[in-house]
Design a protein around this nucleic acid. Structure first.
Lengths: 245, 245
DNA sequence: AGAATAGTGTCTTTCAGACACTATTTG
DNA sequence: CAAATAGTGTCTGAAAGACACTATTCT
């Protein structure tokens, strides 16, 4: 803090969102199509500038990073801020990307956020969200800027988070079955799990899920119990993937 | 990216470092004393602005965030960039803090980094490092800005990292004994571990440590084997703390 | 009935934690 | 010798993975 900040090249700070959801048993990421140079027409992560200003007395005003990320996510999905489905979305900071040449126009630092949601609607046309759509992760290629690296980091974080946290439930509606929860793990990890062992692990893991006391109906087999997310913040013991390599 | 960035209040981007090391079996953090307002005289995490500029052709030049963090760490510890001990330091991005009122002077986004090192020297007087010193973590109180929250997040990250990665070795010299490694866990987690079970876990965990083939001498008991850090990036299975709560 | 899905029980292996015991040094 | 530290062996309980088996629905 020994330097005069005004002596430096001005920098812009943006938030970019890696929003993940599960559709048809496959992991999807929200992408927008760029409407201007650079990378015109290329898919990109949704995002935008963090807003700040000064009031009449010269005091700094503005939104927090978390607020900026929530606002961008709401704008791009077309859900109003405060919408029930948006409030159920898990949003966490992923990391900051600031290579000096990542944007040819100016020095831009992008604070990336990771979002998990269930039942995310198709983005509404108009405004920023003109060309936003949910894309199966393997089809997310040729992304603008360094967004491929950000997406890869987000996927790795998501995979790891499922191991030690009950966040898989953030991909599910408020009430869900063990099978739905298992589909989340299978979609994010890209593997299949034994339904019987998975059931035992989830239901015996303290605070992971809480039974609602109702059953599904209308399905093809035996009706399943419905659960809500439990109070646990971490899973003990974790639900580990097999050792890699 | 639909806004003109120049229409926004200019923002400064800094890096702040949570540098941890172990001295006398206790976890220490590197703190500097602030030489100016705000928070004059209060302890703070070392840090500074990320440098960027434009060359004569108008292209953006500057350092990456990782480079800025490494530079700040080198300046504050007094180790020259490229020094062997500095090259052995583990440095990773922790998170970005950007509340609009975190610095009364202007909008400042701080990208925090977490550093683990062994045998870190006492900071050299002069220049930025005038009042820097290694402080036992429990004595790091009344920090400037939001640095107490950053430090808390760094400590929590460090504790978690020891569980699933071999990074405890980053707190040790190049060659170390199992007992030294155990002291790292005990200092960071603040608990005591059974030396015999710890020895078995560490030496049977694939790729965690590799025996050097030499023994220590001069100690009080039976000489111990020396190890180097192994090639593993993750521990499988992890070395878990007991369940919290 | 047969297919489909939900859920339980059991066996084996692996690993964590407790701790007895052996090994090798210094004083 | 005792004290100190390093390292091995063994037991027990918890949990993972494999998988037989039961339960309940729809067609």
């Amino acid at each position: 803090m020994e330097y005069d900040p005004r002596a430096y090249e001005p920098a812009a700070v943006t938030v970019d969102i890696v929003a993940l959801t599960i559709r048809d048993g496959r992991l999807h990421v929200l992408l927008v199509e760029r409407g201007e140079e650079p990378y015109l027409g290329r898919p990109a992560l949704p995002g935008g500038f963090v807003r700040s200003s000064r009031d009449r007395r010269g005091r700094v005003r503005g939104e927090t990073l978390d607020q900026a990320a929530a606002r961008e996510l709401a704008e791009e999905t077309g859900l109003r801020a405060g919408h029930a489905r948006l409030r159920r979305v898990h949003l966490e900071q992923l990391g900051t990307y600031g290579a000096p040449d990542r944007d040819p126009r100016m020095r831009v630092f992008s604070v990336a956020y990771l979002a998990f949601g269930a039942d995310m609607p198709d983005p509404v046309a108009g405004g920023d969200a003109a060309a936003a759509r949910w894309t199966p992760v393997p089809e997310a290629r040729r992304l603008a800027f360094d967004h491929a690296a950000i997406l890869a980091d987000g996927l790795e974080r998501a995979r790891a988070k499922l191991e030690y946290t009950p966040l898989a439930a953030a991909f599910c509606p408020p009430e869900f079955t063990v099978a739905q929860l298992r589909e989340v793990y299978e979609a994010v990890w890209g593997i299949t799990l034994d339904p019987r062992n998975f059931h035992r692990k989830v239901t015996s893991s303290e605070g992971f899920v809480a039974p609602v006391g109702a059953l599904t109906g209308g399905g093809r087999g035996r009706p399943a119990q419905l659960f809500r997310r439990g109070p646990a913040e971490h899973l003990h013991p974790p639900l580990l993937r097999a050792a890699p390599r």
